[in-house]
Amino acid sequence: MKYPDFNQTIPIDEVGVEERVSRLNKRSIKKDSKIQALKMALSMIDHTTLEGSDSPGKVIQLCKKARQPHPAIPDLPTVAAVCVYPRMVSVAKKELKGSGIHVASVATAFPSGQAPLSQRLEDTKFAVEEGADEIDMVISRGAFLNGEFQLVFDEIAAVKEACGDAHLKVILETGELHTFENVRKASDIAMHAGADFIKTSTGKVSPAATQPVTLVMLEAIRDFYYDTGKMIGMKPAGGIRTAKQAIQYLVIVKETLGAAWLNKDYFRFGASSLTNDLLMQIVKQQTGHYQSLDYFSND
């Protein structure tokens, strides 16, 4: 494959991006289309816990919630994946056996990525050997901002190789890239280097996912698809807490990339508290009433 010259910058007009997002946010999603969207969003969640205090007990409970988000609502989809640190992969793998829910693991010295490449690759291999179906890696933002695009590219390619059959999500950490042009460039580097998904954030840096950043990345995915015919997935992560926001993201995906991306193979939400708000809205749509928060498990 011929790679583009990453020293060339693709111009992005910030005002235009924000206007487009605000226009998309005006879509009014009601009735059947709303219920469908809520369930679709639920099925796209990477149910996540990434804390220093994570223990097998916590992860097991998270997995149980992933399998059965709400006992009282029939016909609910499960979430797409559970996302944990490498040490917790085997616990999650065992707990999710037979459910079809993937185990995703952050690796490569998440969240900073500030470790030698050899260690980051070991980190990745360990997670894969423990049974991770998906690897969420971080790019070297320092190197990227320093203009070392080839280095960033090579590192992603090396991690991709270390992943073997596991799918690779590349976290750009857009909150540290500062401009939409940088986000676009990092997206292009990641996709050309072998990413299966591109992902906005670790969730450890503010701002995390925003809709304008997501739109810029989706447009990068669209251009990559126009040029190569290859479909790359997208995962906004961090800061998406409400069902309303989730539906807005789905509208952005639908009107930028279309129906083929509206499933968990090509779109994910990295979130933890979003699940319960989606459940609450589904109950509201079905019964006409809001239930108390106490009716939703906090796992």
Binding site: R27, S28, I29, K30, K31, D32, S33, K34, Q36, A37, M40, R222, Y225, L250, K254, E255, L257, G258, A259, A260, L262, N263
Partner: peptide, 12 residues
């Protein structure tokens, strides 16, 4: 690209 199927907006 396919913008028509899978998820359509209900009248609002």
């Amino acid at each position: 690209l396919d913008f028509a199927s899978v998820w359509e907006y209900a009248p609002a």
